[in-house]
């Protein structure tokens, strides 16, 4: 296995964390394998994406040459990527577990007859006898699976926040190769008709330095106002467990966890959250975790750094007061 292809899907968004992670992982894996780190860019993007790819270690960037690819459509993008993977002789294809990544990666994997593993948390190429080692938590993180793929092609999607970004090499350059892809007219239609941004007011969850998050233990939608107040004092973004989302207390864009956002704050305050493994994997990259839960036996206390075993309704108002006091004393 020599050619590691980092797949970048431009779907109306800017080059960002997801792309950096996938390129960094690709370059590291290529180095492990003694192979080559290359990238593919599909979708309406400008030249800057190729430059970014070079700065994170790709030596070649393949772009799909077809006017049919300016707007994102899963099947067409998968078609184009299959052709790019074949011309680039890609042994390993790396996607990010973004929505388009989760959508397109298995389509491409199917077309290539590849070994496909989604949402992996670790890869390396330090396998005796060659190959790629893949780590994936299963059964809610209650078990961990380590697999080795020895035959190409392998299609993987990387869980967000599972890769340490490389330092970009400013001014690095490489070759841009346009692949004339032939996307066939599809038998069905697919088009984006509306896109709405949901403004949460505070910082974006993914970028937040502090997150205050509530679960089923909040007991009701209206009680989230007390978290909002705590969030205000801390300058935090607000998040939630799946249970709180399912109950309709908060929008599903707030969900943190395996099937929600992966976050990496310096401080994560979990309120009325039991600590199910599917929630905790979303905060694996958090630096400090504080848990407030009235059940001292709640599993979250095995994973948090600081714990308060108390009814949040009693504790949070006092915590807000204490934080305000601390703020005024710090500024005077």
């Amino acid at each position: 296995m020599r050619n590691v292809l980092a797949v970048l899907i431009a779907n109306g968004a800017e080059f960002g964390r997801a792309e950096i992670e996938v390129l960094s992982a690709g370059s590291r894996l290529a180095a492990d394998l003694g192979g080559t780190s290359v990238a593919a860019v599909v979708g309406g993007s400008d030249q800057s994406w190729a430059r970014e790819a070079f700065s994170y270690g790709a030596v070649r960037v393949y772009v799909a040459g077809s006017p049919a690819l300016t707007h994102y459509e899963p099947r067409l993008f998968a078609d184009a990527l299959e052709q790019i993977a074949r011309s680039a002789d890609a042994d390993v294809l790396l996607f990010s577990s973004t929505i388009s990544g989760l959508e397109v990666a298995p389509l491409v994997g199917y077309k290539l007859g590849a070994s496909v593993i989604m949402d992996v948390t670790g890869i390396d190429g330090k396998v005796e006898g060659g190959g790629v080692r893949i780590q994936k938590p299963v059964f809610g993180g209650k078990a961990q699976s380590e697999l080795v793929a020895q035959k190409a092609p392998v299609v993987l999607s990387l869980r967000m926040r599972s890769v340490d970004p490389l330092q970009p090499q400013e001014g690095a350059s490489g070759e841009v190769i346009e692949i004339p892809v032939n996307v066939r007219p599809s038998t069905g239609t697919w088009r984006l008709i509306e896109r709405n941004l949901e403004k949460s007011g505070g910082p974006r969850l993914e970028d937040a330095r502090i997150i205050v998050s509530g679960g089923r233990g909040m007991g009701g939608k209206e009680n989230f106002s007390c978290l909002a107040e705590l969030g205000d004092v801390l300058g935090a973004a607000l998040g939630a467990s799946r249970a709180a989302v399912d109950l309709g207390w908060v929008p599903s864009t707030w969900q943190i966890g395996q099937t929600g956002k992966k976050v990496a704050p310096e401080l994560y305050v979990a309120v009325g959250i039991s600590g199910a493994s599917q929630h905790m994997v979303g905060i694996a990259a958090a630096k400090h975790i504080v848990a407030i839960n009235k059940d001292e036996k709640a599993p979250i206390f095995q994973m948090a750094e600081l714990g308060v075993a108390e009814d949040y309704k009693v504790f949070i108002p006092k915590l807000i007061e204490a934080l305000k006091k601390h703020k005024t004393s710090a500024t005077t």
Partner: peptide, 20 residues
């Protein structure tokens, strides 16, 4: 047949929580 399970195990968590 392309993928071989090398290890399958129950991970251990070893964080010490300090209770207030």
């Amino acid at each position: 047949t392309r993928l071989k399970t090398e290890r399958f195990y129950i991970p251990t968590v070893s964080r010490q929580c300090q209770m207030i």
